[in-house]
């Protein structure tokens, strides 16, 4: 069967965006999006773990008995999360410190386990790697955008660069995280609805034109 990479890409980033559509991995989304840089860091760490765990789960999908697939997936994911921790601590200590507790918690991030279970365990290696990449990108983009908005409004800065002294402390708080998340989901659904309505309208117009031209021929 031929792999449809375009569909995997669109699904991962837009149609099944793990943060804004599937509402998975909400714990780091709410806790770490105080800064845009945190969003990028966490997003890239999750993307790495997603790609690696998806590839390995896909490779071993016929060897792992279905009875122990979840513990096996968790073992695989935990291994890659530990590798990410070791690499970040060695080469990016600042990012390692700012991600703190949420870095080891990637092990229990629903996005990764969900993709291993629902996609990688049923699909070939290349498709699984692509799914990991695009799901990770969707997660990274959502976290970075949320982080940027919260940093601008809550700290008057972007990527650590001060823009102005005006700050709304609410956006840096936990309640502000929920509020921003809700607004993002609402905007995402609104855009998706508009696009799907436009698409349906175009399809309807095409179908009508086709029917009327057929009638004229008869």
């Amino acid at each position: 069967m031929k792999t449809n990479f375009k569909k995997i890409a669109v699904d991962g980033v837009v149609k099944q965006n793990p943060t804004l559509k599937l509402v998975l991995g909400t714990c780091p989304t709410l806790a770490l999006t105080t800064l845009a840089m945190n969003g990028i860091g966490m997003g890239l760490a999750v993307t790495f773990v997603l790609i690696c765990s998806n590839v390995l789960v896909s490779l071993l999908r016929k060897a792992i008995p279905s009875q122990v697939r979840i513990p096996a997936f968790v073992l695989i994911i935990a291994t890659f999360v530990t590798i990410v921790r070791l690499v970040l601590e060695k080469f990016m200590p600042d990012l390692y410190d700012s991600l703190g507790l949420y870095l080891p918690l990637i092990v229990v991030n629903c996005v990764i386990l969900a993709r291993a279970e629902s996609f990688a365990s049923k699909n070939p290696v290349l498709a699984s790697a692509a799914d990991g990449l695009f799901m990770g990108l969707g997660f990274t983009v959502a976290l970075t955008l949320m982080g940027a908005v919260r940093e601008i409004l809550g700290a008057g800065a972007i990527f650590g660069v001060k823009l102005w002294d005006f700050q709304i402390a609410f956006f840096a708080s936990s309640a502000g995280a929920f509020f921003t998340y809700a607004i993002f989901i609402a905007i995402f659904c609104l855009i998706e609805n508009i696009i799907s309505k436009n698409k349906k309208r175009k399809e309807f117009a095409l179908a009508t034109a086709y029917t009327s031209s057929n009638t004229e021929v008869k």
């Binding site: 792992i64 122990v68 096996a72 935990a78 291994t79 590798i83 070791l86």
Partner: peptide, 14 residues
């Protein structure tokens, strides 16, 4: 044996 194999390989790598 499957879980043990994964744990051993992961442990060695880590």
């Amino acid at each position: 044996s499957c879980l043990l194999a994964i744990a051993l390989i992961s442990g060695g790598l880590l």
